[in-house]
Design a binder for these strands. Structure first.
Length: 592
RNA sequence: GGCCUAGUAGCUCAACUGGAUAGAGCAGCUGCCUUCUAAGCAGCAGGUUUCAGGUUCGAGUCCUGACUGGGUCACCA
């Protein structure tokens, strides 16, 4: 099905062919909604056609206008302002277009394609709790997966757990030293937070010891490396790599605490993964790939035994792939993980949702895989999102305690939703469970929308002092518009409705025009990997609906024909709001 | 320093990928609830789109150069 701007583009192409015998590229034809300070519904920009018409702007516009009004009865009249041809549509055409939309099942979604996508998101380290940056990652990843699914891709959502290395050893070490055998259960603390606390504890002790060494005259770098606790952590890492049983057992125990904690947060956020990958399991495979590349001469070994790849011809640097002691690095692990994934899914595309500070890493990763002639190399796409900053440009760092903990933020948002909702006093008849569900929906809706309305690649600022609004351009605003549509549906009592032709008001036309382009919006969002296009569309639609709702009577003071049409329009708006917000992973309540 | 990236109202974000007089929300000020939910609606005020050139019918958008911020260039992940 074509939307109205597409229909107009086609018609314009016909006009150009008929009038000037010219085939013009479709992307030269620009059709937009007429700006509200001018008369008309849609506007064609005629400047690009002047070369083919060989006439001045006014004449060209007039000829096209004449042709269109004569050929298409739906176009009632036209007007020309400068180089812009404004078309006025017959209401009947818009009503018919709306009818078509109403009858569509799964409006906005496309048929299944035969293309598989693996989308990796979240990617936490197992030594610290999830923070706001992870939340952005998860929101962008989850929404993008839904959007790709909506346009027909088969999407596999996967997670990568960075479960090995020196960092987790730090938490393990301080737990051994200071925890006296306590556990998340015994302390009643979420597992990831529990382990995270010992990571912070390590940083504290390390700082003290470093400072002590500094007073003895060591330089800062040496002091950090020679601090006893740092040495112990390194020793522990060596034991882990050597497969020491006790170390592995401790590692497993603490990681499991963390995973249990993560699971809780995933569940609250409503995200899920089809499969988990663990670096501890893929790094060996990565090493094997490196060994093969070494044999084929693609990589080379330095005197100290470390393995490198030279990417200077491609404008990049030399990159290390294996340390001199034979242990693997970040890149090695990602090579292994990619291979493992291809074995599992035979995907056409791999999307990595990872912060933009990793841009260089992914360039290198893809280039190496291309040089290795891996079939999945070209399908790699790094969906880079900007870092979340605190006001004043401060960065969030776990170690320095300047991060916003994901769970704290969720609690805070739900609490805020509760306070504001109770203030309004509209849900006194709800049960406690219903109330709890609603507060969760509103609090999370606000947070998710706050993140998703911003273009992923842009840095965003979050001020923990100010919290997230519930009024204006927010999640609850859209939820509220939906709730209004649902109240109307309850009043309608499920009666089926026949749509008849009526005279359209301005705010009704606006809604039809918005509904008309919803599928195109999803398609653009999928093409650009940009959920914010869906978020902003939902806001526009909600805003237009609120205006419609305020301007026009629906149930009372209308004749049957008008009432039926407005009810049907409201139902369709509700359905599309629900569809769009579901793509974003935001729930909509029936009442609020 | 090299490369990458961004700079739009006091603040947080838009701008259909080059189209008309740059739009929303928050914060500030006015109005609107005895008729469908005021988490709403209408209005006022707020801009030399960092700056300087260029490309063209037309530039917030493309090019060049500055300025400012961020990222990256680890035998960390």
């Amino acid at each position: 099905m074509y939307n109205i701007p597409e229909i107009i583009s086609d018609a314009t192409a016909d006009a150009l062919k008929e009038l000037y015998d010219a085939n013009i590229a479709m992307d030269k034809i620009s059709v937009q909604e007429t700006r509200k300070e001018f008369e008309g519904d849609y506007t064609i920009v005629v400047f690009p056609f002047l070369k083919t018409s060989k006439k001045n702007v006014g004449d060209t516009a007039q000829e096209i206008g004449e042709f269109l009004t004569k050929t298409y009865p739906a176009i009632k009249q036209y007007s020309i302002v400068k180089g812009f041809l404004n078309l006025h549509f017959d209401d009947r055409f818009l009503v018919d277009q709306f009818k078509v939309i109403s009858f569509q099942k799964d409006y906005g979604k496309q048929a299944q394609k035969n293309e598989k996508v693996v989308l990796e998101y979240c990617g936490p380290n197992t030594n610290k709790a999830l923070h706001f940056g992870h939340v952005r990652n998860m929101m962008v990843g989850y929404a993008t997966a839904n959007i790709l699914q909506a346009v027909g891709y088969k999407v596999h959502k996967v997670n990568i757990l960075n479960d090995r290395g020196i960092a987790i050893c730090k938490s393990m070490l301080t737990w051994q030293k200071f925890a006296n055998g306590t556990t998340p259960e015994s302390e009643g603390i979420k597992g990831d937070l529990f382990v995270s606390n010992y990571y912070v504890k390590f940083a504290e002790v390390h700082k003290q010891q470093t400072e002590a060494l500094l007073t003895k005259g060591l330089n800062p770098k040496d002091a950090q490396a020679k601090a006893p606790i740092q040495q112990e952590a390194r020793a522990m890492l060596r034991k882990w790599e050597a497969g020491d049983k006790a170390t592995l057992a401790l590692w497993e125990k603490m990681n499991n605490w963390v995973y249990a904690g993560f699971e809780e947060t995933y569940k609250r956020l409503g995200v899920d993964f089809e499969k988990n990958y663990y670096e501890s399991k893929t790094y060996e495979l990565g090493k094997a790939i490196v060994a093969k590349g070494l044999k084929s001469g693609l990589f080379y070994k330095k005197e100290d035994g470390s393995v490198w790849v030279d990417l200077t011809e491609d404008g990049l640097d030399e990159k290390i792939l294996l340390r001199s002691d034979g242990t693997s690095v970040y890149l090695t692990q990602d090579l292994g993980t990619a291979q493992e994934r291809y074995k599992d899914f035979k995907m056409d595309q791999s999307i990595y949702v990872v912060a933009d500070e990793q841009n260089y890493h992914f360039k290198v990763l893809q280039l190496i895989l291309q040089k290795l002639k891996k079939p999945y190399a070209d399908g790699i796409f790094h969906l880079a999102y900007g870092m979340v900053e605190l006001p004043g440009g401060a960065k969030m760092k776990s170690r320095e305690g300047t991060k916003v903990d994901a769970d704290d933020l969720l609690d805070e948002m739900v609490e805020k939703a509760k306070i504001e909702t109770n203030k309004l006093g509209k849900i006194e008849d709800f049960t406690e469970t219903e109330k709890a569900t609603l507060f969760h929906q509103i609090g999370l809706g606000a947070m998710k929308y706050f993140i998703l309305k911003v273009h992923p690649k842009k840095r965003m600022v979050f001020d923990p002092e100010q919290s997230i609004d519930l009024v204006g351009d927010t999640g609850p605003f859209i939820q509220y518009a939906y709730v209004r549509t649902q109240a109307l549906m309850r009043a309608r009592k499920g009666k089926t409705i026949e749509i008849e032709q009526i005279q359209l008001e301005e705010s009704e036309k606006n809604l039809i025009k918005l509904l008309d382009i919803y599928p195109a919006k999803i398609e653009a969002a999928a093409k650009n990997f940009d959920p914010s296009e869906v978020a902003n569309f939902a806001y526009d639609l909600a805003k237009s609906f609120n205006k419609f709702y305020a301007d026009l009577p629906i149930l009372k003071g209308t004749d049957d024909k008008t009432k039926n049409f407005r009810l049907q329009l409201s139902q369709q708006v509700g359905a599309i709001l629900l569809s769009a917000m579901t793509l974003l992973g935001i729930q909509l309540p029936q009442r609020m």
